[in-house]
Amino acid sequence: MMQLQPVERQTGWRLFWNTIWARAYPRLIGTFRERSWFFFEALLPVLSTVSYIYVYQAINAPEDYIGFVVIGGSMAAFWLNVLWSMGSQLYWDKDDGNLQLFVLSPAPLMAILLGMAIGGVIMTLSRALVIFVVCSLLFQVEYQTGSLWLLVIVFVVTMAALYGMGMMFSSVFLAAGREVWHFANLLQEPIYLVSGFMFPVKALGFWVASAASLIPLTLGLDAMRQLLFTSDPTIGFLPVGVEILILCVLAVFFIAGAAWMLAKLEEIGRRDGRLIERRR
């Protein structure tokens, strides 16, 4: 007869740390387990990215613009992941009955959100890399690779700020109830537009680009394009150093905001008895 091994009791930071990896685990494992997901998340975006590339070719755009679309198309995978697998996740968890298990367990909710974010970044990175490599090879895009470390820093701070925003969204979306589906839908194309996924955000003018900078991908994309394409030094909205600084501030703001909103949501939800109510 199988003997059950006793589970070591975890508390404090160790509990927080283990919760993060416990929640990240299904996403890391799921990255390649369900192959049809890979098709929907990587190959379908390739098709739409290629369509936008052909639009630029139809109007004889400079070669760099094809690269702009490839970068935008790849980074769009992260935005979709933040909307559907971060922002909406607690709502799906509530719908499936998992949220009540999270709330009842001693695991901190903030660690669960962090685990979702880490798992989401790694899972989506595999999808984004496929879009990036396939489109770059198909259209023979040439990149400037002079500042690789700076590029890595831009990517890391962009992800920190973006997923911090996603963690904050998850509380907001959970409070929104069944309208979450429509919220997430509404935040797709309008954000692709104002964040300049398919063109340099500078084209929208200073004020629109400034307002859109609240979405971390706006500045992240702009900085990446400035580092990867140097043929036109005027395409950038702000200097890369300034953009990195703003992204760092956004990362701190969003992660702190997520912690505050989660605590508030839990407090109100427990008080009103609506935290795990599945009718709304």
Partner: peptide, 19 residues
């Protein structure tokens, strides 16, 4: 309204930047 208009404006901006 917002989604379709945003979707088409992406193409309009792409087109306008080049032409």
């Amino acid at each position: 309204i917002a989604r379709p208009i945003a979707s088409v404006l992406i193409l309009v901006v792409m087109y306008s930047v080049i032409t």
